[in-house]
Amino acid sequence: MSVNTADVAKIASLARIKVSEAQLEAMVPELNGILAWVEQLGEVDVTGVTPMTAVIPNTLRLRDDVVNADPLTGGDIRDAVLANAPVAEHGFFGVPKVIE
């Protein structure tokens, strides 16, 4: 499979990365080069193979339902949460107005 300019434009839009026409043109052969190279995987016979789920055999651990048990993963830290925000007002993050 290979991509054309329109495909790359669509992918870039899905990935929310603005690209100029010139960048698009440059990206098409680059991405096609990479895609052509990874496509050799298609030749591997994977009949009956289960896709890898856990890299090292391990199962999901569950935590107790306790609020702020660990301050590093708990709430009540609004100042810290907002400290790096480009726009924070009245305790909220600010973004350009969204029309739903």
Partner: peptide, 12 residues
Amino acid sequence: AYYTQAQKVRAL
């Protein structure tokens, strides 16, 4: 074609 196949090859 890509991701699932890759995770299978990864298992191999």
